[in-house]
Design a protein around this nucleic acid. Structure first.
Lengths: 166, 166
DNA sequence: TAGCTGGCTTGCGCTGCCCTAAGTCAGTCC
DNA sequence: GGACTGACTTAGGGCAGCGCAAGCCAGCTA
């Protein structure tokens, strides 16, 4: 809540057929499609728990802090969307249970969740947030970065948006 | 919809006070807080347009493909949350208009949106998605990466989750 | 002064997300 | 064979997000 003397952050630049913005519709936008898959708060929280290693129905509901009907509905949707799989497993002397596990498609959302969490740590938490990521091999903190294929670390202002051939 | 012979992707590991997961609640989770700020589809789409350089009310509504009442409500919320600012500007001979611009806080969400878009490109688009990011200086494509402070590129399976001192 | 335009607001009704509370059902444990 | 547990489903109701269709107002243009 400091006084905003905003220095208008630099943004990506539209290039080629994308310029001006008014000349094209955003149909087929991959961001919109991604949001259609994980739009709800409950879906995000269930995925968070999946990344924390949760696999059982009741654990998902209580740890994500959502009701069982919502957990059931959302887990079903995430399975249908291919982000989770249900696998039967049986501990000795126990009856068969269902475990929900991330598929490769679901696991590949990790950077997006990590980026959101990092933003929340930076802008919404008083103390930097309760949970951090560390590289196991070297113990250093891990952050989300935008890098080009040549290895340069980039900021949004250094980027061009390009229209891919279709 | 291929047959799932999933090889269970490696996930981050809980360490220290975070292990086992059942021993702590996720109160104060930065991901949950971030989602509370930008939970709705319309908020994401408006932010997308802000990153594309849109600044006027009508343009936001039509380019994001949402109705004006929703655009008005969501823009107001995003301003209140500090992601956008309203600035009056006047072109010569025109009356004053309002421009919505990203604040530093809003602009800092770019990696998260880029990560979601990248995921959508990879898993939901047939052809890799309509829009790509390039590094202006070298022309190389840009991707979201998880890197530790020592510069190592990491995958989720190489990460530890740690509890930050409070 | 009358019209036009940008930037909204208001009033509807629909749908979807979410909650609580209660019920179901299969398999184990005692 | 009765209780228990995990994994759900069903029922009922509230509220939020959304679209459509109007309406409103300030300032500029004619």
């Amino acid at each position: 809540m400091t006084e905003a003397k905003e220095a208008a952050p630099a943004m990506p630049r539209l290039t080629g057929a994308l310029e001006p913005r008014a000349s094209w519709p955003a149909t087929g936008c991959s961001l919109a499609r991604a949001i259609d898959v994980v739009s709800t708060r409950s879906a995000f929280l269930l995925l968070r728990e999946a990344f924390y290693g949760t696999s059982r129905f009741d654990d998902f509901a209580t740890r994500a802090g959502i009701s069982e009907p919502v957990a059931a509905a959302r887990l079903r949707e995430l399975v249908e969307a291919g982000l989770l799989t249900r696998a039967e497993y049986r501990e000795p002397g126990q009856r068969a249970r269902l475990a929900y596990r991330l598929t490769e498609k679901g696991a590949d959302l990790f950077p997006a969740l990590a980026a959101l969490m990092e933003w929340g740590d930076r802008w919404l938490a008083e103390d930097g947030g309760p949970i951090g990521l560390r590289h196991r091999d070297c113990g250093e903190p891990v952050a989300v970065e935008l890098r080009c294929a040549a290895g340069h670390r980039t900021s949004p202002g250094e980027l061009d948006l390009v229209h891919r051939r279709r």
